[in-house]
């Protein structure tokens, strides 16, 4: 125990601010929500214990729950790969750019890349609305664009595009990962007659695997939790026709519009389990495709 502390104390010191925040601010509500998920609670009368009823209702009778799952899964499966691909592409351009142009200009553009998600979402709404910027431009060339946000068959893809554009954080991590790949491996590959494409697939991707994995898990969790942008773009309703009924939006409306706190809590815990399951799957499969440089075996 003493040894353990000696060895790990610095780590815990660095974790301390987070731990304090977690235990004093977050842990209580989290536990409370677990308890509430077994009750009926409208925030006015005291909670009534109902056992597993909320969960049974959710899985057996709630069609909107399944709709929300479907929308959210579609979004996660489309937006995460899309965002990672864009992030990696931009990182590779910047990696070349930094070597050629100098770090200064890259840093100069970073703020615009990072952008806050609410501001970006509002901007996006202006661009993609029925009479928005995009359709105005399309009209100039004689194309009658759909209402990108109000048309149920395209609205989700519009959101995926928005998500793709918010590549800042994973891009920075990719950039750091790219820069840590020794240049002489590419030189050796050059002499080994590997084309640029081959170098990308045979060297860059495998050596970046730990970073890709890290970004994948983080972005997946992020995508499951998408709320701000969809709340703003769908006016908080998940409309049109529930096509943007994201899980978190459904949960939010259950809690704060219909004051079904018990049910909302149950929804939250199911989401937590879903995220945990996906993260677990990612970790389980990672050993087949993630190569860690300093791994001992």
């Amino acid at each position: 125990m003493k040894k353990f502390l000696q060895k790990n104390a610095p780590g815990y010191v660095f974790l301390a601010p987070w731990l304090v925040g977690f235990f004093f601010l977050a842990a209580g509500p989290i536990l409370a929500s677990l308890v509430l998920s077994f009750t009926k609670y409208d925030m006015i009368s005291p909670p009534q214990f109902v056992g597993l009823d909320q969960y049974i209702f959710m899985f057996e009778r709630d069609r909107r729950f399944y709709k929300a799952l479907q929308v959210t899964f579609s979004f996660v499966f489309l937006s995460v790969p899309a965002r990672l691909i864009v992030a990696l592409a931009i990182a590779m351009i910047l990696d070349k750019g930094i070597r050629a142009i100098g770090i200064y200009r890259a840093l100069y553009y970073l703020p615009s890349i990072l952008g806050s998600s609410i501001a970006v979402a509002i901007l996006w709404r202006q661009v993609f609305a029925g009479e928005g910027v995009l359709n105005t431009i399309l009209a100039q060339v004689g194309i009658d664009g759909p209402n990108w946000l109000a048309n149920p068959s395209v609205s989700l893809y519009t959101l995926v595009t928005l998500a793709m554009w918010q590549f800042g954080a994973p891009m920075l991590i990719f950039l750091a990962g790219l820069r840590s790949i020794p240049q002489d491996l590419y030189e050796a590959a050059e002499i080994d007659a590997a084309s640029k494409v081959r170098q990308f697939f045979a060297i860059t991707l495998p050596l970046l695997a730990p970073v890709i994995f890290f970004n994948l898990v983080l972005q997946m969790i992020d995508a499951f939790k998408t709320f701000n942008s969809v709340f703003i773009i769908s006016n908080g309703l998940g409309s049109p026709a529930d096509s943007l009924l994201f899980y978190t939006l459904y949960l939010f409306n259950e809690a704060f519009k219909f004051f079904r706190m018990g049910y909302a809590s149950a929804l939250a815990w199911v989401l937590l389990l879903i995220i945990a399951a996906f993260t677990f799957i990612a970790f389980m499969t990672s050993r087949y495709w993630v190569h860690y440089e300093n791994e001992r075996d």
Binding site: P182, D184, A188, I191, L207, H291
Partner: peptide, 13 residues
């Protein structure tokens, strides 16, 4: 031609 690097430059994966 072939080249041998000081750092070896072996593909680590």
């Amino acid at each position: 031609l072939s080249m041998v690097f000081q750092s070896y430059a072996l593909y680590p994966h």
